[in-house]
Amino acid sequence: MTAVAWGAALLQALLYAALAPLLVGWIRKVKARLQNRRGAPVLQPYRDLRKLLVKEARVAHTASPLFRAAPYIVFVTTWLAASTVPLVAVSLPTAAIADIIVLVGLLALARFFLALAGMDVGTAFGGMGASREMLVSALAEPAMLMAVFTLAMSAHSTNLASVIDYQLGAFALRPSFLFALGGLILVAIAETGRIPVDNPATHLELTMIHEAMLLEYSGRHLALMEWAAQLKLLLYGALIANIFFPWGIGQSFTPADLGIGLAAVFLKLLALGAALAIGETVLAKMRLFRAPAFLNLALLLALLGLLSHVILEVGA
């Protein structure tokens, strides 16, 4: 049984890496259609990655060894973090290695090295990106944690598998989960660098956050960094989809269950991606010093979730 479970976990980790570019391609496609463009094919991100992987990498004279190590660390850490989030089946052994707080910690480790890599070459853009990234993440962290707390207060657990099991077992309309969902979506938007906090498509110098840190990368290093960003988007998507809409996720490791789980998560992610694309089309990017207000809203939502849990959902 455990061998099967570990096998499924490995399979799922590979699935994460394989599906991540697809989600990005889908979002870009939907966005393009909404803007009356035909857009690149959905599989374009795969081609980009392949092209970058075979190209020669260039590194600035001023770069230190950390610059070359960072892409590997960022990618691997993000991948490990992703593999702890149930995608197609619930009770994976990897979910026990790390609960939600460890997940947040792993993502923070990836961000730490990303920011350091941005500062390494010593260009002004890199420093700017690192500084802004740390601001946004610092403000997102309490909101994220508050949302996690809201879930954990009901489910009595921070283990993702337990939380999803709890949702499946005792589903009810809960105001606290509604608010936590809202807060978590805002946090996810900020953390994955989407509009309105950051624009993943921009290379307009003064508005970049994430892209500014990657500016000096090329070749396979850039491919790893891009892939890590795509993984992170998929991770947040799976987190939101499977915690708040857990239906269909595989409860056991039989092929039928896994197949249904895969189909379900596929549909959920398509819907979430389309919603994100619509949101990005409707909204405009905010200037940097509006981002605190955005993340305060996330914190407020999560806090209200907590309060409504305490006030409305617990008697006595």
């Binding site: 923070a108 961000r111 010593g122 690192a130 740390m134 993440s137 610092a138 997102a140 962290e141």
Partner: peptide, 26 residues
């Protein structure tokens, strides 16, 4: 604990600053 989380993230920012400015760059 939200304050604690904020603190943790700000510590990360602080030490990205320290390390990035002192040990990286020129």
């Amino acid at each position: 604990s939200a304050v604690l989380a904020l603190t943790g993230a700000l510590v990360a920012a602080t030490f990205v600053k320290v390390y990035g400015v002192a040990f990286l760059g020129q």
